[in-house]
Simulated assay, not measured.
Amino acid sequence: MRRTGVDSGQRDSAATSGVFDRAFASGDDRSYWRGNAMMMLSTAVKVYIAAEPIDMRKSIDSLSMLVRPMFDQDALSGHVFVFYGRRRDKIKVLVYDRTGFWLMYKRFESGSLADPAAIARRGISLAELTTWLEGIDVGVRRRVHAVNATVVA
């Protein structure tokens, strides 16, 4: 987060709103945001994982242009599109939310993602994506299948 005028004891106008004030009160710019910044996604959102690695230097515009040829989907659909690098230690997640694109980037400090190509072939839920992004191999667990009930008795 960028602050201006910090040395003179003044903050820029964006930093004077309530959320930012709590962040600056502790003296650590990142203290408030650690674990608190999130984006809400519906369970109806589908997750698409690239079947092959991409050049991780690509930005929002380049990745959104890859969505149609790689996933046969519209980048503006609101679904989650996951891209990973050759060494599988970096991942980018692209989402559109009616006002613009989100691009989330994660670099694993040690280790790498469990076989993204295999997960792309079988599909992954939003809950499994969260687990996978924590470095847990979701391919070794058996998924409980959804029940299509029409009557409660």
Rank of each mutant, 00 (worst) to 15 (best):
G27A: 03
T43Y: 13
D29S: 13
P53W: 11
D21C: 11
A37M: 14
A51Y: 11
M40V: 13
D55R: 15
V45Q: 01
A37T: 10
S42I: 03
K46N: 10
I54F: 07
S31P: 01
Y48L: 12
T43F: 14
A37P: 01
Y48M: 06
F24I: 14
S31G: 03
V45F: 02
D55S: 09
A37K: 00
W33L: 11
G18K: 10
Y48V: 04
M38E: 04
R30T: 08
I49A: 04
G27L: 01
D29M: 13
A44E: 09
E52V: 12
E52D: 09
F20K: 04
A37V: 14
A50F: 06
G27S: 04
Y32M: 08
G35V: 01
M40L: 15
S26N: 08
D29W: 12
A37D: 02
M39K: 06
Y48D: 00
S26H: 03
A50P: 05
Y32L: 15
T43D: 08
A50M: 00
R30Q: 08
I49C: 10
G18M: 12
R30H: 10
A51W: 06
V47Y: 00
G35M: 09
A51N: 07
Y32I: 06
M39R: 04
A23I: 05
M39P: 02
G27I: 00
D55A: 10
G27T: 01
M39G: 05
A44L: 12
V47H: 04
D21M: 15
V45N: 06
A23Q: 01
R34Y: 13
M40W: 05
I49F: 07
M38S: 13
R34C: 09
A44C: 08
M39L: 14
G18N: 02
V19Q: 04
A50I: 05
G35A: 10
F20S: 06
L41C: 05
M40K: 07
F20R: 03
G35S: 05
E52H: 13
A37S: 15
P53V: 11
D28T: 07
V47G: 00
A23H: 02
F24L: 14
S42K: 03
M39S: 02
S31F: 05
M38L: 14
A50D: 03
A37Q: 01
R22F: 11
W33C: 04
G27Q: 00
D55M: 10
M39E: 05
I54L: 05
I49R: 03
L41I: 07
N36K: 14
Y32K: 03
V19P: 00
F24V: 13
F20T: 03
R30G: 00
S31N: 05
S31Q: 03
L41W: 01
F24W: 11
A50R: 02
P53L: 06
T43V: 09
A44T: 03
A44W: 03
N36Y: 05
E52A: 14
A37E: 07
S42D: 09
A51F: 06
M40C: 08
I49W: 01
R22V: 11
A50T: 01
F24R: 02
I54P: 00
